[in-house]
């Protein structure tokens, strides 16, 4: 598996798009730091971008890689390698190289700017960790779509829809339901609804660590009570982990039964 991972990783690191992605974050990091002149503020702005962009890039890269490496996969299938290794290796290669671009693209400017001397280091690390999780989750979901759909156009369609749903539509539905049922106690509902969407979960997790949760009012207090504690943090981390493990498990499950 490590060999497949190595080849997928190198293959991607050599491609132009990985550079573009890396340079984009590098540029973004520098620009934000220059404009804000403050690490904590830059982290907040960055969060808003990461929450939307990382899932999008993960989905698109994942689905593109799957379809583009079809020949590579078929070549490997005739070799003495178990299927699990082929698919897990490819998945980790893609998710790994994207995470690499994210962490180093953003890490370098912040470190140069003096991250280690600022007190935002924990927030920034949390941002990178959730970013890494989102990359892994959405790449895994994209692999799932690609492996279940032979038709590329359909696959791309589903992938974009998935992103749109998670990043935009889910929030809309969430808000509508809050307004519709405003007469009922909704703290637990909103808590669960937040936990069920990795994008929302990441956003809430970061926001609450950033000491701006006072702006969120009463619900914010409930959230703070939950996410702010260690138990909340652990549960959130477990949820993110679940969101990663389940799709990855399904990749292996489907791949083992598929005809090529």
């Amino acid at each position: 598996m490590l060999k497949i991972l190595k080849y997928s990783f190198y293959d991607l690191m050599r491609s132009r798009w990985s550079y573009v992605y890396f340079l984009f974050y590098l540029l973004l990091g520098f620009v934000l730091l220059f404009l804000n002149n403050d690490v904590s503020k830059a982290v907040i702005t960055l969060m808003n971008i990461i929450i939307v962009l990382v899932p999008l890039i993960g989905t698109i890269f994942g689905i593109m890689y799957c379809y583009n490496s079809k020949e590579f996969t078929e070549l490997l299938l005739a070799q003495p390698i178990p299927r699990r290794s082929i698919f897990l290796g490819q998945y980790l290669g893609v998710a790994g190289s994207l995470t690499f671009s994210l962490v180093f693209g953003l890490g370098i400017p912040f470190v140069i700017y003096g991250l280690f001397k600022s007190n935002a280091i924990f927030d920034f690390t949390l941002l990178l960790v959730t970013g890494a999780f989102l990359t892994m989750i959405f790449t895994a979901l994209a692999f799932n779509i690609a492996i279940s759909n032979e038709n590329r156009i359909k696959g791309f369609g589903y992938a974009v829809l998935l992103w749109l749903f998670m990043a935009v539509i889910y929030d809309g539905l969430f808000l509508i339901s809050l307004i519709l049922f405003e007469e009922y106690p909704l703290d637990n509902f909103s808590l669960v609804a937040t936990l069920l969407n990795p994008v929302d979960l990441s956003r809430t997790l970061i926001l609450l660590k950033l000491d701006i949760s006072a702006l969120l009012g009463y619900t914010g207090a409930v959230f703070k009570q939950f996410f702010g504690t260690n138990a909340g943090l652990v549960i959130s981390a477990l949820m993110l982990l679940m969101w990663t493990v389940l799709p990855v498990w399904r990749i292996v499950f489907v791949a083992k039964r598929k005809d090529f």
Binding site: D11, R14, S15, S69, K70, E71, F72, E74, L75, A78, Q79, P80, I81
Partner: peptide, 16 residues
């Protein structure tokens, strides 16, 4: 499969 050499029908290799 380590005892088999297989030559696929259409030589489709990763392009890059």
């Amino acid at each position: 499969r380590s005892e088999i050499n297989y030559m696929p029908q259409i030589a489709d290799f990763p392009g890059n």
